[in-house]
Design a binder for these strands. Sequence first.
DNA 1: GTCTATACGCTGATAGAC
DNA 2: GTCTATCAGCGTATAGAC
Lengths: 212, 212
Amino acid sequence: MPYLDKTAPVPEPVDCRILTAALDLFVERGFHNVSIHDVQKEANVSIGSIYNHFGGKEGVAKALYYHLLNEFEEMVNAVIEEDLSNRERCNKLIYQLFEYTETRRNIISYMLHAKHREFLSDEPPICSSTPFTALRNIVRNGMKKGEIRAGDPWVLAASVFGGAIRMIHLRLDGVIQEPLTDHYDEVIECMWQGMNPVEAPAAQRKQAAGQQ
Amino acid sequence: MPYLDKTAPVPEPVDCRILTAALDLFVERGFHNVSIHDVQKEANVSIGSIYNHFGGKEGVAKALYYHLLNEFEEMVNAVIEEDLSNRERCNKLIYQLFEYTETRRNIISYMLHAKHREFLSDEPPICSSTPFTALRNIVRNGMKKGEIRAGDPWVLAASVFGGAIRMIHLRLDGVIQEPLTDHYDEVIECMWQGMNPVEAPAAQRKQAAGQQ
DNA sequence: GTCTATACGCTGATAGAC
DNA sequence: GTCTATCAGCGTATAGAC
């Protein structure tokens, strides 16, 4: 026991230190306003180590991106595994995203603002990644089971999650002062009422739109 | 008449050429992956001119940002001036944003991805700018008149426009293949059903959310 | 694997002629 | 106002010792 003091701060592995330092710096200043030297200094490692582990700044950003994307995927899969209705799955995911925004702000910020063009040259955009496809599948299954109105899966998915994502943006930008979880009920309530299945399209569509 | 051939291509003023060139380049490669030399070459002007007009690359980005923000504000104000219900105003604005996304893709892309931290150091975030405040006021007025359910203005505004904004993102990322205007009806219909005024909060809220 | 010192290219910015 | 030529600094990446 005395040989291994569990209370002593265990030094994190090198690559982990690099990633966490990079995450904080990238979110705070933006990817292009952070130099490798900054990361090196913040993570208390040498430039050589960074190149050994990730091959450069882009490599760090990519590794960070895929690591977090993977975490997100696990979260989504865990919710899918649960015995819930598809609506409940959506609710739970939104709530967890709200919680993450409050407790792990930088993670959400990084993933939300990740501009693939800037460091993920040829990789597919995040919306076509596995976890996002899974989200759309939840909506699609909800449509099949009659929980959610039929329609274009993209449109429905955007309608289900769009409000919540918008709230997260507003919160990250500092214009919303209260924790997002305070607004969870209201967001969910507004959102689902538009998702009820319908037999025929509403009466007067297009009424007020400026289309000729 | 013959002295002024209207059909001949009138050379655009220098600053305009600079801004349009910068817009295209910034959207295509991202602000930090574009050098002044690139802009200079694309706009067929000299570096000196760019510095004379805008004082540098940041200056170009800022001028572009505020120019487009101003255009957006005029669009919003024009809709506010019209004799419409507040719901109709929201509809019309969403439709126009969809149209813009199809016809002036780069403008929407630039404004949507404008990271203020990167070149607008101390300026306020876009969501607290005048036109966005106007959007929220439309929603707020709708609440006062009973057209829209009462609630937190931020939440309601996010719920009204969140789905549409999400659609624009998906379209810009290339995952939605059809013009957004094709989906307009569906987006509008899904969205408004959650906005109907209610007296009492729905019965079983919080039912399925993972909150303790 | 980790580190330091160094080299090279690019980019933002300026000076000065026209 | 517009242009060209040039500079200075930064940031990536590498080489080579430990």
